[in-house]
Design a protein around this nucleic acid. Structure first.
Lengths: 335, 335
DNA sequence: TCGCCTTTTGGCAGCGCTGCCAATCCAGTT
DNA sequence: AACTGGATTGGCAGCGCTGCCAAAAGGCGA
């Protein structure tokens, strides 16, 4: 594939300098608009850049520059299959693109070892900052991140201690608020329906908060179904059918997220179960479709874009170490 | 933020060489497992690397290496809000992470000028390859991409000429197949409900293919609703309500994608319209939820992950210049 | 033990850029 | 015209690494 472009050397700053009849430093100053230079020099450089089609080499620039760190941000997320993470990236890139800082991303597939490998790989690009998801990491990941000499921001989860800065919300609190809502509405035989907790630690924290709040009300989970694999409407639908077969007397279900809840809603529609009359449904995330349902889904809206934005802001300025952006309980009409 | 890490210099390859009592070149050879070195040298280097916590500096490595191009891939996508693009990234990162090549991403927000700026920014990192979305770009973008001396792959759309390699499917053909399906089922008063076509050119191509196939059958669109803004279930629901108010006699609706179709389905549920008895619905994309609906959505499944994977493969080897991965029409039960 | 060939090794230039410094220029003063 | 201070400029070292090359170290049969 490399023999396709034998154009020899790409245009360098030295070429521009020669073409513009000025020194290299002048070109550098003009291009970065840093230091002082005459109007004339600016024009000649601009002209030469345009004529030669010069594209700066940031590898060289970053290497030579102060601190030798690149204007890049390394991001490790567990998955791209769950809307939450693209939303996070969306907030992030919106804020970073404005600064002209691109993200280098790695997807860990919820595997801590892959995460560690990705952190090492990303650090080798000497990013200006590193963004991780959640607070649970391999010890090696933490050592690497600390030794990397970069700002580290952990996103989404605030239930625990971070390496450096943390931006997110409390998943435990979300679970507790959800439980209190259901209990307050009079539901008593409440089941949990989720996807694999072994990998999604934050779903586990929500469940823990949920059960704790249930316990405060003198209740316990009335049924429990954990589906292998990632969350999806299909999994939610199959899961609810399984759950109802085992516990026909359920009156409410707390889902690990809205995707699962949508599947549950579909199951109810298909089975002709009145929602919430016969069965109440409660989700998590507050995705777009939740509000468009015939009966808006009862759920908790999480500030996903805002987490991304604040995380980006956190990289730039020196904000507080822990930012809890909270969440919003959406009453909806399904619970 | 930078005064937080005054740890002085990070560990360099020279430090490792000194600590291991070997030359720099030997360390380099060991680390890249390139060239020959003794077992003893390998062990001493490995020990020193572990002891010092050395993380290579790829900025320097790439700068010094052959062709001075980085083991990075630049990706420009129009949005992260539409599942399609995260899915694309998913296929991509799955294939690239295996090779240890991270993606540097930029989000253009469907703006050709932003796309051009992002291409320039990404090229300045001297990526090994550049991945763009769609075939329509600013002339400047094309010039840049060509001059960058990198392999360029355009994803998703095969209806037109690419800069270098193209991986995707024909949106026109998707539209035509969808129309033929609806016509074959006996629907005659068919409307189109979509989001902003000005930005989503591929949706426009589908619609063009759809109308062309309709014309072949002697039909024309019976109603037409374009919603401003991005696609979403909420937009689909509101759109269908508006459409039905204007054309109460519709018997089928072709949606710009499944998200819009889901909103349409919700609108039918809410209004008590039988699907497909009273109104048939047809989507596009074949998202997860489509199969979990009480009546599986009639739609077209696109090979999003596979496009990402093939695009990655395309960067490595020298595959064909144009790969059409086709699509699958899913009959479903809504049309 | 010696010569010959292969494996292993270290030195060093240089990738393209930035930061520092000293040189130059220029306008305003004296 | 000489002088002064700030604005502008170019030269050059060096960022951390790789590729090249020549030197050193082994291996082995004679």
């Amino acid at each position: 594939m490399d023999d396709l472009q034998p154009p020899g050397r790409l245009v360098t700053l030295t070429d521009v300098a020669r073409a513009a009849g000025v020194g290299e430093s002048t070109v550098s100053r003009v291009l970065r608009n840093h230091g002082s230079y005459s109007k004339r020099a600016g024009e000649r450089v601009a002209e030469a850049v345009a004529r030669l089609g010069y594209v700066p080499n940031r590898l060289a620039g970053s290497l030579a520059g102060q601190g030798a760190s690149a204007r890049l941000v390394g991001v490790v997320i567990p998955s791209l299959a769950n809307v939450v993470f693209p939303d996070l990236l969306r907030g992030l890139t919106a804020a970073l693109d404005a600064e002209g800082v691109p993200c280098v991303i790695g997807v860990s597939d919820y595997d801590p070892d892959r995460e560690e490998a990705l952190v090492a790989a990303l650090l080798s690009w000497r990013p200006a900052a590193l963004l991780l998801t959640g607070l649970e990491h391999n010890p090696g990941t933490v050592v690497l991140a600390r030794a990397g000499g970069v700002r580290v921001v952990e996103m989404i989860d605030t239930d625990g201690e971070g390496i450096d800065a943390v931006v997110g919300f409390s998943n435990r609190a979300v679970g507790a608020a959800s439980a209190r809502h259901l209990v307050g509405r009079g539901y008593r035989r409440i089941a949990y329906l989720g996807h694999d907790l072994g990998v999604d630690l934050r779903a586990g924290k929500r469940l823990a908060g949920f059960e704790a709040a249930l316990a405060e009300a003198g209740l316990a989970l009335h049924g429990h179904e954990i589906r292998p694999g990632p969350s999806s409407p299909a999994s939610g639908r199959a899961g609810l059918e399984a759950l109802l077969a085992r516990h026909p007397d359920l009156d409410a279900v707390y889902f690990s997220n809205d995707d699962m809840a949508l599947g549950g809603y579909f199951a109810c529609l298909a089975a002709g179960l009145a929602v919430p009359g016969r069965l109440a449904l409660f989700g998590f995330n507050g995705l777009d479709f939740a509000a468009a349902m015939p009966q808006p889904l009862s759920t908790v809206r999480t500030p996903r874009l805002e987490i991304g934005r604040q995380a980006a802001a956190c990289l730039m300025g020196d904000g507080p170490k822990k930012i809890d952006l909270g969440f919003t309980l959406i009453e909806g009409a399904t619970a």
